[in-house]
């Protein structure tokens, strides 16, 4: 009994340490995104690239919806609902891929400029590309978590990787919360 409670206590301590490490990484990564945001305002000023407004709104909606399902998946696991966790994670993966298709597969193709045209175009592709790379990393992370979840590796008490994947995924969402208005809404459109 004592051994069991000791093991539980050790796991909680380790989770606390892991959590601190993950947040340290997230804060340092946030500075890189912050730098890109500063570059956008330094180089565009009160202007913004002419982009498809509807597409911007749709991909934003997709990412917010994916965060909702990721939260649902993590909550399900925290309450021992294995099926709910697998369903939520799978939907999040699909929505993440849809977001990538929307940005890289559609927006990049229909944008009226290419990366080397001017500073505005370069910053646009760098911001969306760097963010898309994080989404791709998140999708890979979620596929690993989903696969392990199917094997029944995670339990109600021990599911740190699920929490880590969820926090990382929501962080990618927070970045887009600032990138979306900065690229699509702030300033006068320039063709």
């Amino acid at each position: 009994m004592t051994t069991h409670s000791e093991a539980k206590s050790t796991y909680r301590y380790k989770t606390g340490t892991n959590r601190l490490g993950l947040w340290l990484f997230i804060i340092s990564d946030a500075f890189v995104f912050g730098g890109l945001l500063v570059a956008r305002f330094y180089l565009f000023g009160a202007e913004r690239p002419e982009l498809n407004q509807l597409l911007g709104l749709v991909v934003t909606f997709i990412l917010l919806l994916s965060s909702f399902f990721m939260n649902r998946a993590e909550t399900s696991m925290a309450y021992g609902d294995q099926k709910g966790f697998l369903r939520g994670t799978l939907i999040t993966i699909i929505l993440g891929i849809l977001f990538l298709v929307g940005v890289v597969g559609v927006e990049w193709q229909i944008a009226p400029f290419s990366p080397g045209d001017n500073a505005m175009a370069s910053v646009f592709y760098t911001m969306t590309g760097f963010h898309a790379f994080h989404v791709l990393t998140g999708v890979i992370f979620l596929i690993v978590v989903y696969r392990n979840g199917r094997k029944g590796i995670y339990t109600q008490e021990k599911h740190w990787p699920v929490e880590a994947a969820a926090v990382y995924w929501h962080f990618v969402d927070v970045v887009w919360v600032f990138f979306y208005p900065a690229l699509y809404l702030m300033g006068a459109p320039v063709g």
């Binding site: 947040w23 965060s67 939260n71 969820a166 926090v167 929501h170 962080f171 927070v174 919360v177 600032f178």
Partner: peptide, 12 residues
Amino acid sequence: KAAFILRDYMHV
């Protein structure tokens, strides 16, 4: 929006 995500989804 970021505050909501940080508090309720990321459980800061």
